[in-house]
């Protein structure tokens, strides 16, 4: 297997409002390979979006990347650690949009209503390419065409509020691709859309990915989307990756109790009629009231008293690519006295 294009190692992003510390991302690690699709999955509030925003260093204040490495491999083979760059520097800005494009969850409010979509597209093009206004406009039209927007020559002068939700999300994808990045981060790109539009947007992302050899990080809470799109999966819980591996392994041989519970809670057409849908007991703890030990233990059916509530489990390698963070599969380092 080729070297990863993006390697995140022990990423820690904390929010420090006056009331305390929110450990939004607390030691997340994963790899993204060229042309591959990494699905990051987890419940709301588990740190998926903050992880993605940390990569681009656009976490809103008072959030801050505290430690860890975000290693981006450049075309020439050189490696930069995005966690070490000052987020306001030109170098970081060139990576945003230039190397890594980002598609957001809310197509309704992610475009400014005061400028035409052409204006925003041309801005994105001209930020990263030295082209004339005319060329940038031509490029904007091509981008709209690429994402399957009908009549792009006219739509380029439209305002975002004149487009439907699906079309706006296509514009967002066009914006993210404006400077031909090698990585696309799609943060819940279909959550705000209706089901048929969801499928179209996912198809579009896959088509563009194939055409351009894009590496994609797809963030979602929808296991169905993961099954359809991803080739590797990272399951996150409270800021940590609790299990990661190839999509087949995750779906057919899930190891972490949280992954197993997530998979059980998918509605199935094969399920017994009138049976209740399985849910995960309890809810995500309050950000200020993090459980000791394994963060999942209060909701875990297989939690071991005296172990899971005391020690933080370490990562166990099950095989070459399948890793899990749970005491059931290996003794925690801290407990091995």
């Amino acid at each position: 297997m080729a070297d990863p294009i993006l390697s995140v190692r022990d990423l820690v992003t904390y929010f420090r409002p006056e009331e305390g510390v929110v450990r939004a991302v607390d030691g997340a690690s994963f790899d993204l390979y060229p042309g591959g699709t990494l699905g990051i999955v987890g419940e709301s509030g588990c740190g998926k979006s903050v992880t993605a925003r940390s990569i681009l260093r656009i976490v809103d204040r008072p959030g801050e990347v505290e430690s860890g490495e975000i290693l981006l491999r450049r075309d020439d083979g050189g490696i930069v650690d995005l966690a070490k760059i000052d987020p306001r520097r030109r170098e970081m800005r060139a990576i945003r949009g230039g190397d890594i494009g980002y598609v957001f969850q809310e197509p309704m409010s992610s475009l400014s209503a005061f400028y035409t979509i052409g204006n925003q597209l041309m801005e994105a093009v001209r930020l990263h390419r030295a082209v004339t206004t005319k060329e940038a406009r031509q490029r904007a039209v091509e981008l709209l065409q690429l994402v399957g927007i009908p009549r792009p020559e006219q739509r380029v002068d439209a305002y975002s509020f004149e487009l439907s939700g699906g079309l706006r999300q296509r514009v967002m994808i066009a914006l993210a691709l404006a400077a031909e990045p090698r990585i696309l981060i799609a943060d819940e790109p279909t959550t705000a859309l209706d089901v048929t539009t969801q499928a179209q947007i996912l198809d579009l992302i896959r088509r563009i990915q194939d055409e351009r050899r894009l590496a994609v990080i797809l963030i979602t809470h929808d296991m169905g989307v993961i099954a359809e799109m991803a080739d590797t999966v990272a399951v996150m819980y409270l800021g940590k990756v609790v299990e990661s591996g190839p999509v087949d392994a995750i779906f057919h041989a899930p190891r972490h109790p949280y992954t197993q519970a997530l998979l059980r809670s998918i509605p199935s057409v094969l399920a017994e009629p009138r049976s209740r849908l399985a849910t995960i007991a309890g809810s995500i703890p309050h950000p200020y009231a993090r459980p000791e030990g394994c963060p999942f233990h209060p909701r875990c059916a297989r939690s071991i008293a005296g172990v899971c509530d005391r020690t933080v489990p370490v990562v166990t390698k099950l095989d070459e690519r399948h890793e899990v963070r749970c005491v059931l599969y290996g003794r925690p380092a801290e407990a091995a006295e």
Binding site: R53, L56, I58, D60, R88, R93, A94, I95, R96, G97, G98, G101, Y102, F104, Q105, E106, S109, S110, L111, S112, E123, A124, L127, H128, M172, L175, A176, A178, A179
Partner: peptide, 15 residues
């Protein structure tokens, strides 16, 4: 606080 601000930032626009 609106998302379009973050979007603009993610495009690489100077603050």
């Amino acid at each position: 606080r609106r998302p379009y601000v973050t979007t603009a930032r993610a495009r690489g626009l100077a603050e």
